[in-house]
Amino acid sequence: MTAPISQLIRFAMVGAVNTGTYYVCYLAFLTQLPYLAAHVLAFCLSMVGSFFLNAYFTYRIRPTWRKFLLFPLTNAANFVITTCGVYALVDLAHFSHTWAPLVAAAVAVPITFVVSRTIMLRPDNRQASESLGESVAQTTPTA
């Protein structure tokens, strides 16, 4: 199996876990917040987990601060598509606010994979490639 195909399969698996995480958070937040606020908060929280799962499992790379800070760009298209999709489905099409995020997420997957693969597999320069764990160890003073 070629690398892009196996990455796409692992990306889909991470996406399923991420979607489940997002959806559980969304439903929990929906009990206290309007649906769009619940969507935004659940999306942001699940994105952090998605970064680490994609780094370690999908692309088998070491997470770096640079990639962590760029990773939200991989989700920008996803965020716009899902947010507009949720709004259009709920407010315009009168679709259930419970199921709308899942439908909108399915539409965004192919775009998110292409952008994610581009950012996550982009080579870091030496200075910016410091891993998340190493930067904490290096900034801690020794006695």
Rank of each mutant, 00 (worst) to 15 (best):
Y23T: 10
S46V: 00
M1H: 07
Q7Y: 01
A88Y: 13
V17W: 06
F52C: 12
M120L: 02
S131M: 11
Y56A: 10
S129W: 08
S6C: 09
Q7A: 02
S50E: 09
A105K: 09
V24G: 14
Y22T: 00
R117S: 09
A28D: 03
A137S: 10
V80N: 07
Q7G: 01
R126F: 05
H94I: 00
T142P: 02
V136Q: 10
G15E: 01
A128V: 03
P63T: 03
L92C: 03
S135I: 15
T112Y: 00
F52A: 10
A128C: 03
V14Q: 03
P63A: 09
V86Y: 05
A12Y: 06
T82P: 12
L8P: 08
I9D: 04
G133D: 02
V90R: 01
D124S: 06
N54W: 12
K67Y: 10
Y56G: 05
Y26F: 14
P123Q: 02
R10Y: 04
Q127T: 09
A100E: 08
G85H: 05
A3L: 12
E130G: 15
W65H: 13
V48T: 09
G85R: 08
F52Q: 14
S6G: 05
A16H: 04
S116K: 03
L27F: 11
I111W: 03
F57C: 07
V103W: 08
A106F: 04
M47I: 14
Y26T: 12
A77G: 15
P4R: 03
P4D: 08
D124N: 08
N18S: 14
L27Q: 13
L70T: 11
T83S: 15
F52E: 12
L33C: 11
N125L: 05
A108W: 02
M47C: 06
G85T: 04
A37R: 09
E134M: 11
A108D: 11
V115D: 05
L132R: 10
T83A: 15
L89V: 04
Y26M: 11
D124I: 07
R122L: 05
D91K: 07
G15S: 02
L89I: 09
P123F: 00
N54A: 12
A93W: 08
F95Q: 07
T58D: 11
A93Q: 05
A88K: 05
A93I: 00
S50V: 01
R62H: 15
A108C: 10
A104H: 00
A108T: 07
T139D: 13
R60H: 11
C25E: 06
V136F: 12
T98A: 10
L27Y: 03
F52S: 13
W99H: 12
V14E: 00
T118E: 06
Y26K: 14
F57Q: 07
M13V: 15
L73N: 11
L102F: 09
V136I: 09
S46H: 04
N54F: 03
